[in-house]
Design a protein around this nucleic acid. Structure first.
Lengths: 143, 143
DNA sequence: ATTACATGTAATTATTTTAGTTACACGTAT
DNA sequence: ATACGTGTAACTAAAATAATTACATGTAAT
């Protein structure tokens, strides 16, 4: 199964807040661009806020980035929206038979291999910032 | 969400076939070690067979590896059991608004980044063979 | 202070995937 | 013919996603 689109939507939200920084980026405005429900956006904004990526206030329309664009990596967003837990990208079957040499060792043997694969994926995310995303869109739009 | 344990179980199955190569590795025997239902194992055996990793025959008990241990990578198993599709480790929200500069570009901007992360993960899987797994278990068991 | 509007958040729903279970057709060998 | 194994389809329960609805709470302008 795929990793939740919350991650992609989180990137979308942050990027749009940056592009619209002169204006008011309300959950309704964001929801329109993402094409979803404002409540979905507000839930994600809550996660991004909790992770210290944006500033939002109850009753006050709009959100602002809490950090420099170049200082927010895709990994930060990925962790903020809680799509994959540490060491849990791959699931391992539980309760293999302890009387079998394979059954009693397979989990401990596989786990570090899976973790290494997950870390390699996450390393790529750490090396991309929202600034890269914004620049790419700017280029595509010829702004 | 996590990637299906079919992957871990697939590795378990292949490893156990190797360890038990002098004996008869039936779906019931495998199911006992994995601690699941024989039908689940048979479904996975079908996938592993289709991928050319094992040999199984209707009516004849047991399975044999179709390739050298050192010639089967974790990536081969991963593809065989069909847990993640190409370019689909991460899902991207559909139908963002085309009238928004972000909405109409976000998918194309994000997609290669997500693909790069997925490929980095898969590269790690390509560099581990079942022989590594077997050796690790052999060491742990002091055989 | 009342109205208008925004965020925060809980409850509900439909859809999808997983993993397990049951059942049975079909193939092989004694 | 019987016993046993694989192949496979149908059904179920549990979990997660994403959308939707509703409403409490917070802020600001009139």
């Amino acid at each position: 199964m795929s990793i939740s689109s919350r991650f992609a939507v989180g990137i979308h939200i942050l990027t749009l807040i940056e592009f619209n920084k002169e204006g008011v980026t309300s959950s309704e405005y964001l929801a329109s661009s993402v094409n979803t429900n404002p409540a979905v956006i507000r839930k994600l904004m809550g996660m991004l806020k909790k992770a210290g990526l944006i500033e939002v206030h109850p009753g006050i329309a709009g959100a602002k980035l809490a950090k420099e664009l170049s200082n927010i990596t895709l990994f930060d967003v990925y962790k903020a929206v809680n799509v994959v837990q540490e060491k849990e990208l791959f699931s391992i079957h539980e309760s293999p038979h302890p009387d079998c040499p394979i059954g009693r060792n397979i989990q401990n043997t596989i786990e570090p291999l899976f973790t290494a694969a997950q870390l390699a994926m996450e390393k790529v995310l750490r090396n991309v910032t929202l600034e890269d995303v914004v620049k790419d869109i700017t280029t595509k739009e010829n702004i």
